[in-house]
Write a protein that binds this DNA or RNA. Structure first.
Length: 446
RNA sequence: GUGAUUGUAGCUCAGCUGGUUAGAGCGCCGGAUUGUGGUUCCGGAGGUCGCGGGUUCGAACCCCGUCAUUCACCCCA
């Protein structure tokens, strides 16, 4: 086994893979831009304090920290037990939302609000890899800040629907509202245990109702509290029914009631653009969400979510700019690619050379190169064989690099200013004059 | 961080209850009258059996450790 391999959780992308990823990115970009989002790129690493504490305790653990430069150890107070901040002061970005919030806070005075940006860049997490899960992966985010209108949510869901419809992947956009969860916690008397409640509830589809109940108990909820939460486990049926149920159950809670109203309004409009589902068990880990939350699930592929997002009312507050509400969505590029491949919905765009120009002898190479230049000028992807190897070898090479045509351009062709074009698929051969290469039908016999 | 799994040629793998110079297919390189490929035939190169210890007359095989892979948990895209 070779020791030459990429680092854990990372991968190389071959030509074919790069092209497939570009295809997906292209679809997302075009959707983002049609909805008026402008691109933004931020650095791959940020100051450590910019990232720490934004993703919860678990998230902090998964941040890739970058060792300080220089002889930093000499300033460490206790070298046997250095503090993390003494060893590292920078970290690779963990997601695109926090760097975006940092950017908005920094430029709050000059950005036209509401401000819409999209961002397609890799992020890094020091997680253990598994299926569809990497330590370096791409996120494709679209966020809008500076507007509390629910129309933003409607548009973002429409973007999900449009993008996945274009890609040909069947998905459902699951919707929930942090206020709904907060309302449940309130009426069940959970106090500040909202996170414990939601993290367990989120696993309903995985571990079942009994699994959730026992996790609640493990997390220290009383039997009375568990009993009070019971309606959260049984909420099902139509979206409208569920909303009605929830409205009654949470009528004593102000946040709960408001959340139900918002969901009712959103669901009516978001349901027009595609498949959506109300899922009161949807929690999502990132604890900066405050309003509607989304998660996109491929319906025909066993895969974690292929996208997620939600509203966060005060993300820039921690960077000193309070009162800016934002809402955003994220597409998981790597997982989308995996899903499309599994569903055979991935096109295979051509990129390799179309023509290989054979080199017969060193004396004839100048003419071969002139022909190659003509071909390239005509927009044909062309490779000239670099040495006068055996013809069989040159043909083999043409086959292997996927070229459909071999161009034979030696002394006899030069005498007539022509080139022989042989189709490797059909075996047909055409004698074409150099001046007519631009009109040649390269796709014949493909 | 936890649990399990796997690690033999470039790739996919075989290798019996431990027993000589560790095999196959594919791939790679070369050749079969050197301006026309794919098929076929012939020949060739290529392995510290992940690494380090231990048991044994003898270890790819058994034991311990370690590293790496994959899958799952936690968490998440």
């Amino acid at each position: 086994m070779s020791q030459a391999r990429p680092a854990k959780g990372t991968r190389d992308f071959s030509a074919a893979e790069v092209l497939r990823r570009r295809y997906v990115v292209g679809v997302l970009q075009s959707v983002f831009e049609r909805y008026g989002f402008a691109p933004l790129e931020t650095p791959s690493f940020e100051n450590l304090e910019t990232l720490m504490g934004k993703y919860g305790e678990e998230g902090d653990r998964l941040i890739f920290k970058i060792l300080r430069s220089g002889d930093f150890m000499k300033s460490v107070a206790n070298p046997t037990q250095p503090k993390a901040s003494e060893l590292a002061d920078k970290a690779l970005r963990y997601d695109l939302t926090v760097p975006f919030a940092r950017y908005v806070a920094q430029n709050a005075g000059v950005l036209a609000m509401p401000f819409r940006r999209y961002q397609i860049q890799p992020v890094w997490r020091a997680d253990n890899p598994q299926k569809g899960r990497f330590r370096e992966f791409y996120q494709c985010d679209a966020d809008v800040v500076g507007s509390t209108s629910l129309w933003q949510e409607v548009e973002l869901v429409a973007m999900y629907h449009e993008a996945f419809a274009t890609l040909g992947l069947d998905v459902v956009v699951r919707v929930n509202h942090r206020g709904l969860l907060a309302g449940i916690a309130e009426v069940a008397g959970l106090g500040d245990r909202l996170i414990d409640f939601t993290v367990a509830l989120d696993k309903l589809d995985k571990v079942g109702a009994e699994g959730v109940r026992s996790e609640w108990r493990d997390r220290g909820f009383t039997e009375a509290q568990c009993a009070a939460l019971e309606p959260a486990l049984t909420a099902s049926g139509g979206i409208q029914d569920t909303l009605t149920q929830m409205g009654k159950w949470l009528s004593a809670s102000e946040v709960g009631t408001k959340a139900v109203a918002e969901l009712t309004w959103l669901v009516e409009r978001a349901g027009r653009t595609g498949n959506i589902a109300l899922d009161v068990t949807l929690a999502r880990g990132l604890n900066y969400y405050t309003g509607c939350i989304f998660e996109v699930q491929a319906t025909d592929v066993a895969m974690g979510s292929v996208g997620g997002g939600g509203r966060y009312d005060n993300l820039t507050g921690i960077f000193g700019v309070p009162g800016l509400s934002g809402v955003g969505i994220s597409f998981g590029l790597d997982r989308i690619v995996l899903c499309l491949e599994e569903r055979n919905r991935m096109p295979n765009p051509a990129s390799g050379p179309q023509v290989l120009v054979v080199q017969f002898s060193e004396a004839e190479a100048d003419y071969a190169f002139a022909v190659a230049t003509d071909l390239r000028a005509a927009g044909i992807r062309t490779v000239m064989y670099p040495e006068p190897a055996k013809i069989k070898k040159q043909f083999d090479h043409a086959e292997r690099i996927g070229a459909q045509w071999v161009a034979l351009a030696g002394a006899s062709e030069q005498a007539q200013d022509t080139v022989q074009l042989k189709n490797l698929h059909t075996g047909e051969q055409h004698l074409v004059s150099r001046s007519a290469l631009g009109e040649f039908r390269w796709n014949q016999g493909a």
